[in-house]
Computed example of a mutant assay.
Amino acid sequence: MQTRPHELTDVFRGSEARREGLVTAGQLRGPAFRRLFQDVYVPSGIPVTHELRCRGAALIVPEEAVLTGRSAATVLGVPLAKTHDPVEFVVPEKFRFGPIKGVHVRRTEITRKESRPWKRVRIARPARVVLDLVLRLSPRTHNWIRRLRIAVPDVDAFLRTGLVKRRKLAYALLRRRNRGIRLARSALALADPRAESLPESELRVVLSTGGLAPTPQYKIRRKRKVVARLDLALPEHQVAIEYDGRWHLKAEQIKHDHARRKRLKAEGWRFVIVDAELLAGPYQKLLDLVRSVMNYS
């Protein structure tokens, strides 16, 4: 049999390629190809992205499956899924298949109007994607606050793109009775597209659920001109809460942050600087720190 592996330039099912004489079983096991899922391969020279893995997974799930959650968000241009995160689908209750390693399937009600054709399956429309970003979180493995800390940043990021409006989302949630719909409504109430990063959104959720009401991207003006902008602020207390990610560790950024904060401190502002370790720790510790700065005189 003459094989033509050079004709395989995208994701493909190994069994179909073998049947058509494009590749042998030995070649599939060799260095020329990389396996993404059982019976799904891609030429080794093609970079693996989450979007590529979504296209690969679409080859082996039922045609009625709907790509959604962080996977659909990533395909739609909101990069919430990491490369090797599970590919997320929902399917109507009556369909049973799997399990498939690397694919997460949730069986629930979904109407045809909530999705559109994509590849050989379907992809959720933006309002449904946002709903599934929240409903994907199991109450058995996440408590209420932890679920909000995961869900709200995703919703913030999606709203920030303008792919869907808050009003449309609120209407979509209005008459639903899905399990977890109360969490979805709470997440939408806390969502704010002004947030500029996922950690910043999560920090705002911690503060808000702790009884504080920070303003995101607070602008400090002089004579109507914006002279500074704070990640989060409690203006009545002149307290700024800012998240410093890894890029703040660069020498030039450290110098810039120091000068900016020194200038604002001279005007009466006090700062709480939050890093990844503090944000990931007990939320009460973070709240106590902010309150101690608020009460300092």
Rank of each mutant, 00 (worst) to 15 (best):
Q217I: 04
R204E: 10
A57Q: 09
V42F: 00
R270V: 01
P126M: 06
P79F: 10
G245E: 05
Y41R: 05
K165Y: 01
T108K: 12
A184P: 07
A157Y: 00
K255R: 15
T141Q: 13
S44I: 06
L174S: 11
V91Y: 03
H237L: 12
D85H: 14
Q217M: 10
L232Y: 07
L169N: 05
H142N: 11
A151Q: 08
R179N: 13
H6Y: 12
R107T: 04
T215P: 00
L232H: 04
V293R: 09
R4V: 06
R222M: 01
V226I: 15
V75D: 03
P126A: 07
R185N: 09
L188G: 11
D288T: 15
V290M: 12
P199W: 12
P92I: 14
H50E: 01
R140K: 13
G14H: 05
R185F: 12
R96K: 10
A187G: 02
F89Q: 04
K165M: 00
R176E: 13
Q38N: 07
R55G: 14
T74R: 07
A72S: 02
I181F: 08
R270Y: 04
P216W: 10
E63T: 15
V91T: 09
A17I: 05
K94N: 02
F89E: 07
T209Y: 07
D10R: 02
I150D: 06
I123R: 00
L52S: 06
D231F: 12
R18K: 09
L59K: 01
V293N: 09
A17R: 02
A124S: 14
H248D: 11
R246M: 05
A73K: 06
P31W: 08
G211L: 11
T215G: 01
S297K: 12
T108R: 15
A228Q: 05
K219C: 13
T68Y: 13
S115D: 08
L52K: 03
L173W: 07
R291G: 06
P193V: 08
L135M: 03
S197D: 12
P92F: 01
A233W: 07
L174W: 08
I241T: 10
E200Y: 14
L28E: 03
V90C: 07
L80C: 03
G281V: 10
H84C: 00
N295Y: 08
R176I: 05
N295V: 10
A228S: 15
V239T: 10
D154R: 08
E267T: 10
D10S: 13
I254S: 05
R149M: 13
H84I: 00
A191M: 11
I273K: 13
S186K: 15
G102V: 01
H6D: 14
Q284W: 15
P235N: 07
L264I: 03
A228R: 06
V290N: 15
K223H: 11
F89L: 04
L287S: 12
P31M: 04
G26L: 08
F89Y: 13
Y41E: 03
S71P: 11
N295C: 10
L163I: 00
K168Y: 09
R160F: 01
T49S: 05
L212G: 11
V206P: 08
P99W: 00
A251F: 06
F97S: 05
T111R: 08
L173P: 00
S292P: 14
V66W: 10
R179I: 11
H6G: 05
R107G: 01
L8I: 06
W118D: 06
V226G: 07
A191P: 14
L8H: 02
